[in-house]
Amino acid sequence: MFKLPRPKMNGRNSVQPVGTLLSVLCVATAIDIGAGWLLGRPGFGSHARIIFALLPIPANLALVAVIVRRIRKLDEFLRHVHLEAVAIAFLLTGLAVFVYGYLQKAQAVRPLNVGIVWIFMAVFYGIGYVIAVRYYR
């Protein structure tokens, strides 16, 4: 029998430990909330408010880096599944924002809070992931 190289990952550890991801996510979320809280308070000058607005960027960039590292550790099949989930999330979020924009023009809904777009993306990503997993099962 041919000798295969030592596997880099297996069925059990195909999902990498989530400790780092959750830690960075918690820190990023805390900074997001903190920045939002500071921006909601009166008494700060315009320079300070700009700094508060930009405060979440480093932690969120770290979150992106952690997610990209996790994706690179996935095997080709799981990457394929996540790619489909991302594609579905991208398209459905675009559609949702498009529809919301027209409803806004029709004055049927209030102006869109841009923070909600992130929630759309996350929910549609979850839906896309479930669709992809079910398809390949």
Binding site: L4, P5, P7, K8, M9, N10, G11, S14, V15, L74, D75, E76, F77, L78, V81, V133, Y136, R137
Partner: peptide, 9 residues
């Protein structure tokens, strides 16, 4: 495990 991928694959 042998080929180094997930069971789903």
């Amino acid at each position: 495990e042998i080929v180094g991928v997930s069971r789903q694959a």
